[in-house]
Design a binder for these strands. Structure first.
Length: 862
RNA sequence: GCCUGGGUGGCGGAAUUGGUAGACGCAAGGGACUUAAAAUCCCUCGGUGUAAUACACCGUGCCGGUUCGAUUCCGGCCCCAGGCACCA
């Protein structure tokens, strides 16, 4: 055994040995229990960053642990390879998105290999390859056939000077990030998936995912946002038109005094016609259409609206209600129309105050009646119905049912359920994505590409146009085609590509049989491996990616391709790795090397201006606050890097990056190494002690018991809660105790030490596999440690003889003493009451009560 | 703004079911070894008071509550992070 721990040497050696032995290759094996472990695949952005290292280290530990526990473990890796950054990089470097992407994949693969992760690389996939996305196109056709994919008009961010669609990320304070000109909203025909068909089912099953964190299912439930209420029809005055409204508060319908329509509601222009309000309405719609339409922006706008000039009639009481176009009414939610009840809704109240509209109380506060003219805010609590005809006097909750009955009986409305969830818009007017496989024919309209013509390959020998515009619409050899139905030569291909979330919604099925060339996947492989037993990834994907994946699995099931509807049995959402950003007033986000220290603080090396330390945010390329793990790998090696990532924090917690502490992890491995080296001559020639602890004496018995306790602790930490940080500290305690063992030649010392050392190495092996493998082999084992069984602990070694009893007086710690385990309550009470230190606090006082927690604590109340 | 989390020493964190707050580690300070450095080993290390290692008080973002007892449960607030539908 080498005297010094040399990470570079042993990591290269074992990585090669594992590869030669195909240690991570996995095949379908019905004889073994399967375990499908998957981490979220990376976007090939250039280099692996610390967030990846953390994510994949967590996964690798679980994979190796499960393998040692005897499972047949599928642990794959791939690349989420389509997306916008590749286009941006191509523009910046005057190259092609594909070149950039494939180069990044090659580089990042070597980085992952250098970290020693146990992936079956034969299963690697990249979503930008036609052999992957052809099956996505195939599924799109199935969905189109079944009406699950459809087209409708929707808004996009549009930059007129650049003539291009912008992603939300490319809009900075309402301006185009390239040219700085204002961004407009433009309506385009786009493709959607009907995820709302599954809203009810996706919601209901949130409660049947016990292996998911509650916070994620809660977020998903709120995102889907089921509301129970009523749809009510309000006839427009002097017209056949009816405005349909969805409300959850139909108990307040008698208090509806005006109507608000979303600015893009089709009735807005129609109603304004001939009222003299056309100009005002047009101006309002025009102005709103220029605003950012993201929900966070919409929520921040001041409530405002414009009268359409039209009135509608409240069908319950005949009240004449002015109809407004208002910016807080959302076309995507409900029917796009809001019956406004200012007395009982705060937004409506603010709006009524602003425009001088009537406020009518219809639910009164019990015991303290409301006066509409004196209200300063809406009353949204429960109460008693007033000004509501025959419903007066009822509790509003009861009235809700009766009003719904009456709406249905009179045919002016019905009970209804509305969801916040909207259909999934998948069209992207971008180049670097999977082409949507449809053809536009002047005679037949939309025609699906015949299955045998798939894949529709993205042409690669093209460049991006000015401003990052997709070259596809102008690329004749791509767009020109003949109609598959009528053979018209005027037919044109769809030039929109699919949202990259589509690729990541089914890649876990593809991993089961990644080379399958006659279907999305081999049925047998998916039936064996799926669902994923454990999925691990960033909490930032808690809603969209996970919801889309759950939706896609339902689509696959209803297409008869799989038999389950939830893709991930257990989910671990790891916290983000964050770091402070550096911002220069002139150059924006700076790389650390662009910042230098001066007497007056940080300065930008480009312009010398003072740098503002920014906020601590998720590491991201665009914020220039990523840490390159290569520096750690060069300096410390893979095992120390892995160890440190896990030791720094429990996985679900956010981690603010700091280099401090890495030394400690390296030091620990060196300590273990030295211990193994020093004891090597003696432990290598004996078997690990395997007897009862009470046959040992003193420090050897304590060490032996400690080994078993640590095996128990580490196993529970990994199995139950993935708390590797506490697992590691438990092993550190064991190692510290091993250092305390006296080096004389007591016959059992070497055996007990061997047991302790083997235990420590086995427990550490999923975390620091190269390191553990080397010591394992030096102890005389011929096979990889990954093939060794996970250590067991013996119950009789966990038994403690004595307990420390804490004595409190009035809940404050005053003394402590030791007692043998299982000492009776009366004896403990007596011991506490006669304790010298305790006497000081109870002398002259009346003891009122004594609480005893056996083997733990006595609390004396005086 | 809305939804979801989080806030514990100088720092990362521990306390798993309401029962000893600060395990394990980092940094810092002191010491040993060494010609020296590195490495290693030992000691101290939440705050305040005091001659003190003994002792007392305070202390888990802030305010209040429940309880014999609260980092843990409840109510209100502050701050930070993530998501908010075209970043992935």
């Amino acid at each position: 055994m080498d005297e010094r721990y040399n990470p570079t040497k042993i990591e290269q050696k074992w990585q090669k040995a594992w590869e030669d032995a195909q240690l991570f290759k996995v095949e379908l094996d019905p004889a073994k229990p399967k375990y499908y472990l998957m981490e979220m695949f990376p976007y090939p952005s250039g280099k692996i960053h610390m967030g990846h290292v953390r994510n994949y280290t967590i996964g690798d530990v679980v994979a190796r642990y499960k393998k040692m526990k005897g499972h047949n473990v599928l642990h794959p890796m791939g690349w989420d390879a389509f997306g916008m950054p590749a286009e941006n990089a191509a523009i910046a470097n005057n190259s092609h998105p594909a070149t950039w992407t494939y180069e990044n994949i090659d580089y990042m693969r070597t980085q992952l290999k250098r970290l020693g992760f146990s992936y079956d690389w034969d299963r690697e996939i990249a979503t930008c390859r036609p052999d992957y996305y052809r099956w996505e196109q195939w599924l799109f056709l199935k969905m189109y056939e079944k009406g699950m994919a459809y087209r409708k008009e929707a808004y996009v961010n549009w930059c007129e000077p650049c003539q291009t669609v912008l992603a939300n990320e490319q809009v900075e304070a309402g301006m185009c990030w390239r040219c700085g000109k204002p961004v407009q909203q433009k309506k385009l025909w786009q493709w959607f998936f009907r995820i709302t068909d599954y809203a009810e089912d996706l919601l209901a099953h949130c409660d049947q995912l016990p292996g998911w964190p509650d916070k994620v299912t809660t977020m998903q439930k709120n995102w889907i946002g089921r509301s129970q209420g009523a749809e009510i029809n309000f006839p427009v005055e002097n017209s056949d038109t009816v405005i349909a409204v969805f409300t959850t508060r139909h108990d307040t319908v008698f208090g509806a005094t005006f109507m608000c329509l979303a600015p893009e509601h089709p009735l807005v222009s129609q109603l304004a016609r001939g009222t003299g309000q056309e100009a005002a309405i047009d101006a309002f719609i025009e102005r709103i259409s220029r605003q950012d339409r993201s929900s966070k922006a919409l929520e921040s706008y001041e409530k405002e609206g414009v009268f359409t000039g039209a009135y509608c009639i409240n069908p319950m009481n005949g009240r004449r209600m002015p109809v407004y176009a208002a910016n807080f009414a959302l076309m995507e939610y409900g029917t796009g129309a809001v019956m406004s009840v200012p007395a009982h809704d705060q937004r409506d109240f603010d709006f009524a105050k602003k425009y001088g509209l009537d406020i009518v109380v219809v639910i009164d506060r019990p015991g303290d009646p409301l006066n509409a003219s004196q209200m300063t805010e809406a009353y949204t609590e429960d109460g008693v119905m007033v000004h509501s005809d025959s419903f007066d006097g009822l509790a509003n909750r009861d009235a809700m049912e009766q009003i719904a009955d009456q709406l249905e009986a009179r045919g002016i409305g019905r009970r209804a359920i509305s969801f916040r969830l909207r259909d999934w818009g998948i069209s992207r007017q971008r180049y670097w994505g999977a082409p949507i496989p449809v053809i536009h024919c002047p005679d037949c309209g939309i025609v699906a590409v015949p299955e045998q013509d798939l894949p529709i390959v993205l042409p690669e020998d093209v460049g991006l146009l000015d401003g990052g515009r997709s070259p596809l619409p102008g690329l004749d050899r791509f767009t020109r085609t003949t109609c598959p139905r009528c053979a018209s030569p005027e037919a044109r291909r769809e030039t929109d590509t699919m949202d990259t979330f589509v690729e990541s919604s089914w890649y876990f099925e593809r991993y089961c049989s990644p080379h399958c060339d006659h279907a999305m996947f081999e049925r047998e492989a998916v039936d064996y491996w799926m669902p994923v037993d454990q999925y691990i990834g960033g909490v930032e994907h808690a809603i969209l990616h996970l919801l889309y994946s759950r939706y896609f699995t339902r689509v696959l099931r209803d297409t008869g391709l799989v038999q389950f509807k939830e893709p991930f049995t257990r989910l671990l959402t790891q916290g983000m790795v964050c770091k402070e950003t550096m911002t220069c007033p002139e150059h924006g986000f700076l790389f650390p090397e662009q910042v230098r220290e001066t007497d007056r603080g940080m300065a930008c090396t480009l312009c010398g201006k003072a740098v503002v330390p920014g906020r601590v945010e998720k590491m991201s390329k665009s914020k220039r606050n990523v840490v390159d793990p290569n520096i750690l790998l060069d300096q410390y090696g893979a095992d120390t890097t892995r160890l440190f990532c896990l030791f720094a924090a429990p996985p679900e917690r956010d981690l603010e990056w700091s280099d401090q502490g890495v030394d400690g992890s390296a030091r620990f491995l060196n300590r273990v190494w030295r211990l193994a080296y020093d004891w090597h001559p003696r432990v290598a020639v004996v078997k690990p002690y395997d007897g009862r602890p009470d046959e040992l004496e003193g420090d050897l018995r304590e060490l032996y018991k400690k080994s078993h306790q640590v095996i128990d602790k580490v196993t529970r930490d990994i199995e139950d809660r993935f708390h590797f940080n506490t697992a590691i500290s438990a092993v550190m305690e064991l190692v510290n105790q091993m250092y305390g063992i006296d080096d004389t030649d007591r016959p059992q010392a070497a055996e007990v030490m061997r047991h302790a050392l083997e235990s420590a190495v086995l427990l550490l092996s999923p975390i620091v596999p190269h390191f553990a493998e080397e010591i394992w082999h030096n102890l005389g084992h011929g096979q990889s440690i990954l093939l060794a069984p996970w250590p067991d602990f013996r119950q009789d070694a966990l038994i403690q003889d004595e307990a420390t009893i804490v004595v409190q007086v009035n809940g404050k710690l005053r003394s402590r003493f030791t007692a043998s385990m299982g000492t009776g309550e009366d004896i403990l009470k007596q011991a506490a009451l006669t304790d010298e230190k305790v006497l000081k606090f109870i002398e002259g006082k009346t003891v009122r009560k004594i609480f005893v927690v056996p083997d733990k604590l006595v609390n004396i109340v005086v």
